[in-house]
Nucleic acid binder design. Structure first.
Lengths: 222, 222
DNA sequence: GTCTATATGTTGATAGAC
DNA sequence: GTCTATCAACATATAGAC
């Protein structure tokens, strides 16, 4: 592996890094366009125009417009996942961690409406993400399932909170808050949005349903 | 008023009816296109093509593409409202009626994905419905608020169910079910969809939160 | 990797004959 | 109300010179 000296800083790697940087810059621009013109309003021409580049040059970085969407989808997944993990990891396992992750996801979605729409809805006709990028999505769901199982094991939630139905109901809540906030108050921040402010109430409602009446440490019936 | 004989069947009215019929047919076609190509995939050209008409002729019926979207928005509002009312009206006032209306709305949304997306999300960049059509939307919300107030009066729900927060939380649930169903299982029916099947569970969860522990007839605290 | 040039297609909308 | 003709933009994508 490390035969050549400092391969990560050699001219080849520098060139690769430069290329990566251009791609990142192009995706930044794409996000700006989508925030102005809608997710469906993205075009190679407008991207090139804003990048000070001719439109055909963009095809050296992306194979097609679909390729751009796919890269944006992957970026959205990675960033939302990172935001959730960064918020959830330091918290104690169980409902506290789940709550923190949910808050972080909704906050991220409200702050990144274009990418969030691409992930939560399917606004681009004929666009389906690549299998590879879609795998990240399933990873996120597996993580959430594991956290629910842990919350059950800790006695925070009743055993039926580990069912797929409970997990789906949880995603319904998150999706609902995000959808209502973005559709009815676009451009309004997380803290002032009338729907994003309902996040904790919605989570309370959900956890109350899956908590034993006797409290967090009550014995689940055998 | 009724000076001329049978004005509703005279030649003038017949002509008007014919015009209305053409417009309805055009909107039917528009819905089909949106279901195939996405809400943003609608175009005057494709509409005219399928109607066996030249594209400029369509401008005799709609002032612009935005005008078509506005008519579709109005149609979606009217039909969803009608579906909700038809299901809710025969039911006894209170939670039963609210539950029936919610079920009907989600069923309608799943069965009419294109119009539902136009109503629930804002997928068309730069399109905002006319004030007149938007008024219908507020009418629907006022009806829902009145039903909640009635449920509180009947003792079905706690007084705080009449708050705007509770009402918003309710719409979050409906929006969440619809969004998840349409995004993750497009084309799957209401009865077999894994998310639309959660409708009753979600409503149970909501009503449980706003019900007194002692049961529907327990005294609300003074 | 950048550019020019170009093929090829689409769209929304208007003017004006019949 | 229908049509033809047309305008002016806009788009994706490719070929090939430098």
């Amino acid at each position: 592996m490390a035969i050549a000296a400092s391969p990560a800083t050699g001219p080849h790697m520098r060139r690769l890094a430069r290329r990566e940087q251009t791609i990142e810059e192009a995706l930044d621009t794409a996000v700006l366009i989508m925030e102005e013109a809608g997710v469906g309003g993205l075009s190679m021409s407008e991207m090139a125009r804003r990048l000070g580049m001719r439109q055909p040059s963009l095809y050296k970085y992306f194979p097609s417009l679909h390729g751009v969407y796919d890269a944006l989808f992957a970026r959205g997944l990675a960033r939302s996942y990172a935001a959730v993990q960064a918020a959830a990891e330091p918290l104690p396992a169980g409902v506290a961690r789940i709550r923190g992750g949910a808050r972080a996801l909704i906050r991220w979605a409200v702050q990144n409406p274009a990418l969030a729409q691409l992930l939560f809805w399917r606004p681009v006709p004929g666009f389906t993400p690549t299998e590879a990028t879609f795998a990240t999505s399933e990873q996120q769901m597996r993580w959430l399932g594991a956290e629910f199982a842990e919350a059950v094991r800790l006695g925070h939630l009743r055993p039926d909170a580990g069912s797929v139905e409970a997990l789906r109901l949880f995603t319904v809540l998150l999706s609902g808050v995000v959808s209502q906030q973005m559709a009815n108050q676009p451009g309004v921040g997380y803290d002032t949005g009338v729907f994003s402010s309902l996040t904790d109430t919605a989570l309370d409602m959900f956890f109350a349903r899956y908590t034993n009446p006797g409290g967090p440490d009550a014995d689940p019936r055998p």
